[in-house]
Computed example of a mutant assay.
Amino acid sequence: MKRALFTLVLGDRYRQRFAAQAAPTFQAYARAHGLSLVVLDRLLDDGPLGRSRSPAWQKCLLMRHPKAAGCDQVAWLDADIVIRPDAPNVFEGVPPDTFGAVDAFASPSPEAYAAAAGKIRAYLAGHGLAGPDDATPEGFYHHYGFDTGPDRVAQTGVLVLTPEVHGPVLEAAYAETRRPDSRDMLFEMRPLSHHLLTRSPVTWLDPRFNALWATALFNHYPFLADPAFRAGFRDRPDLYHGLKARCLAAAYEAAYFLHFAGTGDDMDALAVG
């Protein structure tokens, strides 16, 4: 069976970070499991719609790429992921007629996700920002304009897909324009999760295949996000960065794929290799 990993890296800053932190882990993982690795470096849709939205939407067009179309199964990984050396094969146990994803609202457990989500909302409110009402899957999809939706949410930073089965589903999600693209909308995640879960069976992956650093950060290391705590290290930033590195190492050890969604700057503090 021909399988490949795909990701997309655009912009000098992101290319440098990917090359330094993520790429070596992607390459080692592909070698370990006999997978092809394709790092896209340009938009699959370079027209007005593609350029007007976050590059995250480009995963919806993945099956247009000839290397994806020639595979039996493909895995999409966002470029802000770092893979642990001994991570198992993400394709194993995902039948070709299903797609594989982590349940966003149950990662690493429903209780841990809910706790982190509440802390993040409180953190945003404390900084004068309002997060959307995403406490339930219903609210998650309603925020994008769907009247109804699935009772679960797929975290779309890691997806296992079958080109001939899921290509049309991804394209339908890409065509959605119910809301303007924004970080508040989580870019492509709301419509893509909705379309995948309403049009395809799913194989839920072990949450460790898409472990969010933000969840670990707010559940276990919230002091790292506290400006007052960080100010105490003003004269010794090396101590702060050392502490952050230790916390990141613990989160990395507990994951298969550690995902820095919304926290990309912290990737630089993770020591890999």
Rank of each mutant, 00 (worst) to 15 (best):
L5N: 01
G11R: 08
R13M: 04
F18H: 10
P24E: 05
F26V: 01
S36N: 10
S36H: 12
V39G: 07
D41F: 04
R42K: 14
R42P: 06
D46E: 14
P48N: 05
A56V: 07
W57V: 03
Q58F: 05
Q58I: 09
C60L: 14
H65V: 00
H65N: 05
K67H: 12
A68L: 06
C71T: 09
C71W: 05
Q73N: 08
Q73V: 08
A75Q: 08
W76L: 11
D80W: 13
I81H: 09
V82W: 03
I83R: 11
G93K: 12
P95D: 08
P96F: 09
D97R: 14
V102I: 07
A114C: 06
A116E: 08
K119V: 08
I120F: 13
I120N: 09
A125W: 02
A130E: 14
G131I: 02
D134L: 12
T136Q: 04
P137G: 01
E138Y: 05
G139P: 03
F140L: 02
H142P: 00
H143D: 12
Y144R: 11
F146W: 04
G149F: 03
D151S: 12
V153N: 00
A154P: 02
T156I: 10
V158N: 02
L159V: 02
L159N: 00
T162M: 10
T162L: 10
V165C: 09
P168T: 07
L170E: 00
E171K: 09
Y174H: 04
T177P: 02
T177I: 11
P180D: 13
L186Q: 12
L186F: 14
P191D: 01
P191L: 01
L192W: 05
S193I: 01
H195F: 15
L197F: 12
L197Y: 13
S200E: 11
V202K: 07
L205C: 02
D206I: 02
L212E: 14
H220V: 01
L224E: 08
P227L: 06
P237E: 05
P237W: 11
K244D: 03
R246Y: 13
A249N: 12
Y252F: 15
Y252Q: 09
Y252G: 07
Y252V: 06
E253P: 06
A254K: 15
A255V: 01
A255W: 00
L258M: 05
H259C: 11
H259Y: 15
H259F: 13
A261K: 04
G262N: 02
T263L: 11
T263V: 12
G264R: 15
D268W: 11
A269H: 15
A271L: 14
G273F: 07
